[in-house]
């Protein structure tokens, strides 16, 4: 078996700190409301280079809103959001487009363009940049092979299953080798086998390319799998860490009614005595 990546650590001092590295993304006292009570209230956290943040919480607590704030698709009512060192909370939309090309985002239902083939969906960003067709084809095939869907190259999204659409959306997010990945409930509504396939892809991207990411989910089993498994490049499969070891660069956030009530490691999460966290885990 291939050795687990360096980030896999055991014991109480397992969590690597990233104090010396500037965060890729930083929220400071962010609040937002839509004609009613606040959806997010005074949320502060950061994502360090190479770090995977799993955002937990039941449906409707503002997880997807937080993700859309992270790449400027929504603007906060107050607070600061720094992306790649730049303040985006007040940045004009036109200034955000170049920053967004450095981010890969996987939407809840895939959000594939239904009038385009899988090839054109995955290559969307490359086509806009005027990359040559031969290079596009090569990179699309590579991205589709990464998600195990090379045979869907010429198909339209309507002919794909829900799980396949989600994997094509992942390929679209990966193709540009982004500096930050945002996953919005990538396994939501999928069967357990397909969910595991998706989680394996996310673990593969995390361990092969070390891309920092935020993953939104309400499925605690997916979050635990991410924390307790790594991608073995020799076996070309996701395998569990040795007993008692967890991925130290995979940490957790939890939202309750728009407030960030937890920010810490898996061990801190399972040992937490915050009533909402306990209720959620149980």
């Amino acid at each position: 078996m291939n050795n687990p990546p360096q980030s896999g650590q055991s014991g109480q001092n397992a969590i690597l700190t990233n104090e010396n590295q500037a965060p890729v993304l930083e929220f400071q006292h962010v609040s937002i409301a839509f004609e009613g009570p606040a959806v997010l209230s005074d949320v502060s956290f950061s994502v360090a280079p190479g770090e995977t943040r799993i955002l937990l919480g039941p449906a409707g607590v503002g997880k997807s809103v937080l993700l859309k704030l992270a790449n400027g698709l929504l603007r906060p009512d107050s607070g600061s959001i720094r992306l790649f060192g730049e303040e985006i909370a007040t940045m004009p939309e036109e200034g955000l487009f170049p920053l967004r090309t450095r981010i890969g985002m996987v939407f809840q239902e895939g959000a594939l363009f239904d009038s385009l083939t899988v090839r054109d969906n995955v290559a969307y960003q490359l086509i806009q940049e005027g990359v040559a067709d031969t290079e596009i084809d090569e990179r699309v095939r590579e991205a589709l092979s990464f998600v195990g869907l090379a045979e869907t190259f010429s198909l339209y999204p309507s002919s794909l299953s829900g799980g396949m659409r989600r994997r094509v959306a992942i390929a679209r997010a990966f193709i540009h080798h982004p500096d930050l990945l945002l996953y919005d409930s990538p396994t939501g509504g999928l069967d357990p086998v397909t969910s595991t396939t998706i989680i394996e892809l996310i673990v593969k991207e995390r361990d092969v390319h070390r891309t920092p990411s935020i993953l939104v989910t309400h499925r605690i089993q997916d979050a635990f799998t991410l924390s307790t498994h790594f991608f073995d490049t020799e076996k070309n499969a996701m395998v569990p860490y040795p007993k008692g070891t967890i991925d130290s660069r995979t940490t957790f956030l939890m939202l309750e009614e728009g407030r960030l009530i937890f920010d810490g490691s898996l061990r801190e999460l399972v040992n937490s005595d915050i009533p909402f966290v306990r209720e959620f885990l149980e």
Partner: peptide, 11 residues
Amino acid sequence: EQIDAMRALGV
């Protein structure tokens, strides 16, 4: 969410 996806892809 195709419009959001387009914006997220920098278009």
